[in-house]
């Protein structure tokens, strides 16, 4: 943004501040606050209700009070004792962590090639990579199933790591390419002067400079892998290789009548709160990363 732009923003802000005094009643402001508060309520309420239900047990679950009358941790301890939920959490963490590391490493290398070097077929390849992100997961399901079986990876976490790369690589590449393009050209020339290789340039010079973009894209990739359901449901069978989303979807009672909603909500809260905390903490970077992939592309 240029200085002139900022001055213009300041003027507009000043104009806006004057505006209400000219009118008799600030209908616009009332509308803004009402709409905003309604939006905040609708966005957050389901999570709050899940949180509230996760502390209720038995018939208390069926009363709609938001504040549990007799809060209990029984659902949480139950989830860990009966479900080996800790194991599923570790599985999810391993899959998502590996996917993030691999996607970022592979994309950063490719981002130098696509962002810095002119070569024939570059535009076409970038379009192909973008179109890979439009692929429906079920369109690769049978082919991937065959591949996973052929390599003896059925019912392993490795199968999920490999399959999830299809979901993360297209956008990590695209976002990192746009960010690498914004880096000054002189960096590369200086590196060449010092006789430094491309890999060193990418991982020692670019990576520290790009860390805000890396955090944003890494977080998006983490969320994508952490939330992935279809591949995890299809390529794993035993509880040993089960991830959290599949575990939550499959929680049921032995009798098969009413679902144990208290436990489902407890499990939901456990997987969601860290994610929401991370996202709210890094909200600026995530918003920047999300829109970089879409608008600048």
């Amino acid at each position: 943004m240029s200085g002139g732009h900022e001055a213009a923003t300041a003027t507009t802000a000043a104009l806006r501040r004057q505006a209400p005094s000219r009118r008799r009643f600030p209908w616009g402001d009332v509308g803004y606050w009402a709409a905003s508060l309604l939006f905040i309520f609708v966005s957050v309420f389901p999570l709050l209700y899940a949180l509230s239900s996760s502390f209720k047990q038995g018939s208390a679950l069926f009363s709609p009070t938001l504040w549990p009358e007799a809060p209990t941790f029984a659902n949480y301890s139950g989830v860990f004792a009966e479900q080996s939920f800790a194991h599923y959490l570790l599985n999810s963490l391993f899959v998502a962590g590996s996917v993030v590391t691999l996607s970022l490493g592979l994309s950063l290398m490719a981002a130098w090639a696509f962002g810095r070097v002119e070569f024939r077929g570059r535009g076409l390849l970038l379009m192909l990579i973008l179109s890979a992100s439009m692929l429906p997961q079920v369109a690769v399901l049978s082919g991937m199933f065959e591949l996973v079986r052929a390599f003896g990876l059925y019912d392993t976490l490795a199968a999920l790591v490999i399959a999830d790369l299809l979901l993360t690589l297209p956008f990590t590449v695209w976002v990192l390419v746009t960010f690498v393009r914004q880096l000054p050209r002189e960096l590369e020339e200086a590196a060449a002067m010092d006789g430094v290789g491309v890999l060193t340039l990418v991982f020692r010079v670019y990576m520290p400079l790009l860390w805000p973009a890396m955090v944003a894209t890494g977080l998006l990739a983490f969320i994508a892998a952490w939330n992935e359901f279809l591949f995890a449901l299809t390529f794993t069978l035993s509880t040993a290789a089960r991830t959290v989303p599949v575990a939550i979807a499959l929680i049921s009672t032995a009798s098969g009548f009413e679902l144990p909603w208290g436990k489902i909500m407890a499990a939901s809260v456990i997987v969601t709160l860290p994610l929401v905390a991370l996202v709210v903490l890094f909200q600026r970077r995530i918003v920047a990363g999300l829109s970089a992939g879409a608008v600048k592309g």
Partner: peptide
Amino acid sequence: RAALLVPWAIPTVVSAKMWSW
């Protein structure tokens, strides 16, 4: 903006279960 990101960050499976409840 924080409220905006809450539904987005919640895993689809979890939001499906939360709403089912």
